[in-house]
């Protein structure tokens, strides 16, 4: 089944990491719907949220390829964990005195904010799921959208520790794997 997948990755903050990620996705024939990058609470690390479309098996395949990139510390597909996913959009919409109040009503319904007003346009900021942002854009299209910018999705899994959680006071270290004791059952292969 082809659907949207949300991959989240913890990466080392080094030059060229974004290039490597993008190159791997392109190489394996994936179209990146959105990619958002930013620092996290730990120094020298960034978190990426990548949205791609594909069937489960091929996304899992590309996830494993991405995991091989040396700078990628962890990467997980959190699609199945019903994560909280949001994006932000800034939209500059044409607003005449006759349409302005109607636009403001729509903005209120969508709990968006108007951050700039000029005689013939408004800039509004909306945060929400991708569907919500899409719907708002559709509604505003009739008034005339002059410019807009979207951040792409960022997401966190619900509940306690997620797949990328770093335990406090446990800095990331390169660990050379030792043979597992014969009886011990490890979490996965």
């Amino acid at each position: 089944m082809i659907r949207k997948h949300i991959l989240v990755a913890l990466v080392q903050d080094r030059p060229g990491v974004l290039n490597r990620i993008a190159s791997t996705l392109r190489r394996r024939n994936f179209n990146i719907e959105s990619i958002a990058v930013g620092h996290i609470e730990q120094p020298l690390l960034s978190r990426m949220t990548i949205v791609v479309e594909g069937d489960d098996a091929s996304v899992e395949q590309v996830r494993k390829q991405l995991d091989k990139i040396i700078e990628v510390i962890r990467i997980a597909d959190i699609t199945g964990e019903s994560p909280v996913a949001r994006e932000m959009a800034m939209i500059k919409v044409r607003a005449t005195p006759s349409t302005r109040s109607e636009i403001i009503q729509i903005v209120d319904i969508f709990r968006a904010n108007i951050v700039d007003v000029s005689p013939d346009s408004l800039i509004l900021v909306v945060t929400g799921t991708q569907e919500k942002v899409d719907t708002l854009i559709e509604l505003l299209r009739g008034f005339g959208i002059r410019e807009m910018s979207r951040t792409g999705t960022i997401a966190l899994p619900r509940g306690g520790a997620g797949p990328l959680t770093i335990e406090e006071n446990k800095p990331l270290r390169h660990v050379v794997e030792q043979a597992a004791p014969e009886e011990e059952i490890l979490p996965d292969w």
Partner: peptide, 17 residues
Amino acid sequence: KIDLPGFKPKLFGHPSQ
């Protein structure tokens, strides 16, 4: 000292597999 926290080759097969 090698410090590559993202480099994680798995060298030993899973016993149950």
